[in-house]
Design a protein around this nucleic acid. Structure first.
Lengths: 104, 104
DNA sequence: GGCATGGTTCGAGAATAGTTGAACCAATCG
DNA sequence: CGATTGGTTCAACTATTCTCGAACCATGCC
C-alpha cells in the first residue's frame, strides 16, 4: 500500500482543464481554494473546511482538488500543509483563478 | 405540459459560477461552446455535436448548458438556434470564457 | 390534411461522484 | 514504549449525472 505520507500530484504539464473546472464547480472546494489564496495552510487550521464534517469527507474534498492539480498536499509534521498551485494554474490556464474566484 | 417551443433560461443575475463550471467541465460541452463562440448556430448544422449521438443525448447536452446559462436555445423555424451568452457570462464572470477556452 | 424533420421529455438502467464509519499509519508527546 | 493527533484509505451506501430508446410536439412542405 502506498505510503500515506507522500501523495501523487499531477505535474504542471498534465493539468487538465476539465478536471480543474470540475473540482472548482463545488462550493466547498471553492471555499477552500479561496482560503488558500491567502497563503498555505495546515489542514487542521483550515477554517474553510466545515469542522462538523467527518475527517474522511474532508480528506475526499482535498483529494479531488489535489488530483486535479489545484492544490498541493504535503506532509508537515504530524499534519498536512495545503498549498494552492496558483503558479501552475496561471501558467496553464491564465486568468482562470481570478475569473472563478473574483480578483483578489 | 410545458410548450416545447420556449425553454426557460436563467437571467443574467441568476447565473451561478458552480453550475457554469460544472457545465464547462465536460469536453463535449466545451466543444459546443467553442463552436458557438464563432457565432450562433442552428443545432442541426452544429458540427461540434457528434452526429453519431442519439438526439436525446445531444438534447441533454444542450440542456445542461442552457440551464446553467451558458447558451441560449430558442426556436428557429423547425429547428433551434443556439447562442453563446457571452455578454452575460462576461458581465458576471469576467474573463472566465477566455480562461477556459483560451483567448480567441 | 398528411407526413417528414428537428428537438424535447420521460423513464429506466449504467456510470460516476459524494458521504461516512472503521481500520490504519506516521509523527509527536509523555 | 504507549497514547494521542491529524490524516489517508477502504468499503458500502446514497445521490447525482449520463445515455438512449420511445413517445411526443411543433413547424414546414407536399
Amino acid at each position: 500500500m502506498p505510503s500515506t505520507t507522500e501523495l501523487p500530484h499531477p505535474d504542471r504539464a498534465a493539468l487538465e482543464i476539465g478536471a480543474v473546472l470540475f473540482a472548482l464547480s463545488d462550493p466547498e472546494r471553492r471555499e477552500l481554494v479561496r482560503e488558500l489564496r491567502e497563503g498555505p495552510q495546515d489542514a487542521a487550521n483550515c477554517i474553510a473546511i466545515d469542522p462538523s464534517l467527518p475527517k474522511s469527507t474532508k480528506s475526499h474534498l482535498m483529494k479531488v482538488l489535489r488530483e486535479s492539480g489545484v492544490i498541493r498536499n504535503e506532509p508537515n509534521g504530524r499534519n498536512r500543509r495545503l498549498t494552492l498551485r496558483d503558479a501552475d494554474l496561471e501558467a496553464r490556464f491564465p486568468g482562470l483563478l481570478d475569473a472563478v474566484l473574483g480578483p483578489r
